[in-house]
């Protein structure tokens, strides 16, 4: 009970922190909208050549693009999550301060990142998505249950995204220069989450693989729930398994890292 209130407070703080950067938010909305436009016209050209590519019709492909823009910063697929800050704290040794507090490092950052994600969804996601839905022909469900399922899939996506980035950030305990790892992870995430192209477009074995990797929980899973192309319960189960596995791995690495810090490595 008492612990719950702490992490709620941390999440609220995470939300409010990002809310203080109004100019950055407006700039982000603008960027996402422009990006979305470029991608939409690319997709439309592509779908003109190959109708029903990946099983999507044109309206679904366009919806997918705007969904991607709405979730890009929410799920920190293009960077910009908590990980830069944690890596910096590890590098400067400030992370030691976090350790003497009576709070759990992983839950703390999870709460803070969920607060951030929620702000990004509302502050940066909604406007480009609404713009896309108004200007283009999109395929949106009218059934509120589908929307609820979609939001739940996004929430799962936030946790999986956190799980991946937490592991990436913790690598800074062992690597002097974490920027290489962060950039690799960013590139991999951009590709494997379906941010460039929907994962069901990928052919053969490559397609099979990217669809079972954790990144497919981020964009592809919520998109397929919204577009009515995936069974919601099966999707939640898939995302849930990855979330639990990644959080558990994070805990293991965290305790190894903590041991290292208290020994003074």
């Amino acid at each position: 009970m008492g612990t719950g209130r702490l992490y709620v407070a941390v999440a609220v703080g995470g939300f409010r922190r990002y809310a203080t950067y109004r100019v950055a938010t407006v700039a982000g909305v603008f960027t996402n909208t422009v990006f979305g436009l470029i991608l939409v016209y690319t997709y439309l050209a592509l779908w003109e050549e190959r109708p029903q590519l990946g099983g999507y019709d044109q309206a679904q492909a366009v919806t997918y693009v705007w969904l991607g823009q709405a979730l890009l910063s929410t799920l920190a697929i293009g960077g910009g999550g908590f990980e830069d800050e944690l890596i910096e704290r590890i590098r400067t040794g400030d992370v030691a301060i976090d350790l003497y507090r009576p709070a759990d490092l992983q839950l703390w950052w999870l709460a803070s990142d969920l607060g951030r994600a929620l702000f990004q969804l509302l502050g940066r996601g909604v406007v480009p998505f609404a713009f896309g839905a108004l200007v283009f022909d999109v395929a949106l469900p009218s059934d509120p249950v589908t929307w609820a399922g979609f939001l739940l899939a996004v929430l799962f996506g936030m946790v999986v995204g956190f799980g991946i980035r937490y592991l990436v950030a913790l690598s800074a305990f062992w690597l002097m220069d974490g920027t290489g790892v962060v950039q690799m992870a960013w590139l991999l995430g951009f590709f494997c989450s379906g941010m460039l192209l929907p994962l069901n477009v990928f052919p053969g074995l490559l397609g099979e693989i990217v669809r079972v990797l954790p990144w497919s929980s981020l964009l592809q899973a919520p998109a397929d729930v919204l577009l009515g192309r995936a069974d919601p319960l099966g999707t939640f189960a898939f995302q849930g398994v990855w979330a639990v596995a990644l959080l558990a791995a994070g805990r293991l690495v965290q305790s190894a890292a903590t041991r290292r810090v208290v020994q003074g490595g």
């Binding site: 008492g2 209130r5 702490l6 407070a9 941390v10 703080g13 409010r16 922190r17 203080t20 950067y21 507090r101 009576p102 709070a103």
Partner: peptide, 14 residues
């Protein structure tokens, strides 16, 4: 990034 008082509220919970 947050007002000083927010850090104190957090200590309160922590």
């Amino acid at each position: 990034d947050l007002p000083l008082i927010d850090s104190y509220k957090l200590m309160h919970r922590m």
